[in-house]
Design a protein around this nucleic acid. Sequence first.
DNA 1: TTGCTTACATACAAATTTGTATGTATATTA
DNA 2: TAATATACATACAAATTTGTATGTAAGCAA
Lengths: 206, 206
Amino acid sequence: MVRKTKEDAELTRKRIINSARAVFLSRGVSRSTLEHIATHAEVTRGAVYWHFKNKTEIYQAIREQVFLPLIDRMDDSLTLASNEDPLTQIENSLCQTIDDLNNNLEMRQMYEIMMIKCEYVDEFASVPQEILSNCSSIISKIKHVYERAESQGILAVKLSPIDLALDTHLFFSGLLHLWVKDTDGSMFRHQAKELIKAHINLRRKI
Amino acid sequence: MVRKTKEDAELTRKRIINSARAVFLSRGVSRSTLEHIATHAEVTRGAVYWHFKNKTEIYQAIREQVFLPLIDRMDDSLTLASNEDPLTQIENSLCQTIDDLNNNLEMRQMYEIMMIKCEYVDEFASVPQEILSNCSSIISKIKHVYERAESQGILAVKLSPIDLALDTHLFFSGLLHLWVKDTDGSMFRHQAKELIKAHINLRRKI
DNA sequence: TTGCTTACATACAAATTTGTATGTATATTA
DNA sequence: TAATATACATACAAATTTGTATGTAAGCAA
C-alpha cells in the first residue's frame, strides 16, 4: 500500500518535521536517530530518506519553518510606524515575542532545541555567527526607535541610543535564555512581561 | 612500560581532562569519543577508563574544575565588604568575570562548551535547573548591593532593588552568551566592559 | 491501458562506538 | 624481597547507526 497522492506525501513530510522537533527536544539533536524520528512519525527510514537527505536537512527545515517568520515579525514591529510612543513600541515588540513563545508550541520547542539541545559544531558551526548577525540588525532597529524616543524627549537617562539599544538587546537575550531554561515557569516565565516593563520604565521620564 | 608513579598517574589524569576539554570544544560533547580524547591525550582508552567511568564523569570533572571556583569568586566579590560604592562594586564584579574569561583559557573553553557545545538531555538534563538555581543566589546578592546603593542615595532610578538586580542579571546573562558566540571579538568581546559600565551608569545619579 | 514515475518499505553492508575482559610490567608495601 | 595492587595497553564482543541498494504497489500522463 504505497504511492500516496501528492497531498498525502506533503502530509507525511510535515509529520516527519513535527516528529523530528519532538525527538530533537527529548533526546537532543546529536542523539536523535533517523530511526527515532521515523518511528515517531509512524513511517520507516525509507520515507525519511525520501523527503530529506539527512538529519541536517531536517534540522534546517525545522529552523526555517519557525525562525525566519519570527525574525520578520520582530523586524516589522520595530520598523513599522506605530501610534504608540517609541518606548512603548519597544516594550510591545519584546512582549509580543514572549506571547509568541507562550502561544506557539513549535516556536517554543525550536527555541529550546536551539538553546540547550543542539551542539554548534561541524555543519552547525556557522549558526552562532548567523545569530550574531541577526543581533546586529535587531540592535540597529532598536537604536532607531531609541533615537525617536530621544528626539521626543521622553528618555529619563543620558545614555546614547546605541548604548540603550545594546543594553536592551543584551537584557532580552538573557531573558530568552533563562525563559527557555525556566521550564516550570517559577523564576522567569511568569514575570517575563513585568521584567520587560521594568526594563523600559527604567529609561522613561517621570 | 606501564605502572607509573602516583604523580605520573595524576599527570595523565590531568592530561585526559585537558584533552577532553579541547575535544569537546572542537567536536561537541555528543560527538566526542573516548577514543578521540585518549588519542589527543596520547594514551589509550584503557587509561581513560581507568581514571573515569565514562564520558559523563569526565564532563563533570571539567565542570567542577572550572565552574565551582568561578561561582565562589563571584559570590565573594558581591558579598565581601568593599571600599567602593555599591554600584562600582557590581560593575567590578561583572568586569572581573570578563577579565577571567579573557585571561583563563580553561574557563573560556568551558563556557563555550556549556553554552553551545553541549545538549542538555538525559544525564545532563538537570544542568539547566542548576544554572537557574545559581541565578537565584546571584540575583539575591546583587539585590543586597542595590539595597545598599539605594540607602546611600546614589541611585538615579526609581526601580526597586530586586527589579534592578533582575535587570542586571538578565543583561549579564545575555552578555555572556553573546560574548561566547562572538569568537572574533568584533561585536561584543571588545566592548564588553564598556557595556557593563554603560549599564551601571544608567542607574547612577548625576 | 501501457509505461513511467512516485512514495515509500525492506534488506544489507560497513563503520562506529561502547564496555569489559584480560594481560603485564612496575610501584609500593609488608 | 616477595606479594600485591596499581596504571595502564590490548583484544574482543555486542550494539548502534548510517547510507545505499533494491523491491513494489499505486498514481498519473500519454
